[in-house]
């Protein structure tokens, strides 16, 4: 699905063709895609919540668990680490809007220095996204070491699927960001290219708001 959206997002009549609303084709398609994603993540989050507390064996997210063989498992979610990764993803959204502002206002007064460097902000956003993925890789591997895999119980299945889908979206976003960064380095993005960054930013921020929901519903509420 992400593929289809990416395909739609890049393709359109680039020239000044007539449009009914004066809006960009790809931006309309991207918002429609985001609407669709609301239902995808709505289903994934619903499933996680419906299955919360229904696992017959541990480890559990917020409660300790002693297995029949006497092995003790701590509550598995690591709030400090996830708070840090949440902070990184929130900051990436700031970098993203600054990248968009830099491209939109290239050459305008007030955008001479760092604020006008679209390359810097695109790279910063991609780096923040990659850092978030690094945190997630750390989280997943430590869970596996503590005895929770996607096969262990309903919590494992629904948790890894939900956060894994979100992580995949972040990874696609990082790839997209790096592609735009590559184009920026190759030929320099101009204000006329701002629509491309605008559309990518919508996707990126949406992935961020999904994490805002996941962080509250999965990590914080017991």
């Amino acid at each position: 699905m992400a593929t289809a959206a990416a395909a739609g997002a890049h393709e359109a009549h680039e020239h000044a063709h007539y449009t009914t609303t004066g809006l960009n084709h790809r931006k309309i398609a991207m918002w429609a895609f985001i609407g669709s994603e609301c239902m995808l993540f709505g289903s994934l989050i619903s499933t996680y919540l419906v299955y919360k507390g229904r696992s017959v064996v541990g480890p559990f997210p917020h409660e300790a668990w002693t297995s029949p063989t006497g092995q003790v498992f701590k509550p598995i979610l690591n709030i400090p680490v996830t708070s840090a990764s949440t902070f990184v993803l929130l900051m990436s959204s700031l970098f993203m809007v600054l990248a968009l502002a830099a491209v939109e206002n290239k050459g305008k007064p007030g955008y001479e220095g760092l604020l006008g460097s679209s390359k810097f902000w695109l790279a910063a956003t991609a780096a923040a996204g990659a850092t978030f993925l690094g945190f997630q890789a750390y989280e997943f591997t430590s869970f596996v070491h503590e005895g929770l895999t996607i096969k262990t119980n309903l919590f494992g299945s629904s948790f890894f699927t939900l956060t894994g889908f979100h992580g995949t979206h972040v990874a696609v976003g990082v790839l997209w960001l790096m592609t735009m960064l590559f184009i920026d380095m190759k030929r320099g993005l101009q204000p006329k290219d701002a629509i491309n960054i605008d559309i990518m930013a919508l996707y990126w921020h949406f992935v961020d708001v999904v994490w805002i929901i996941i962080f509250a519903l999965v990590y914080l509420i017991k």
Partner: peptide, 20 residues
């Protein structure tokens, strides 16, 4: 238009989640 394209699906997703 963008507000409508977003809030419509978001509302349906929210109602469906509560229904579940």
């Amino acid at each position: 238009l963008f507000r409508k394209l977003f809030t419509g699906p978001l509302t349906i997703a929210g109602i469906t989640l509560v229904a579940f």
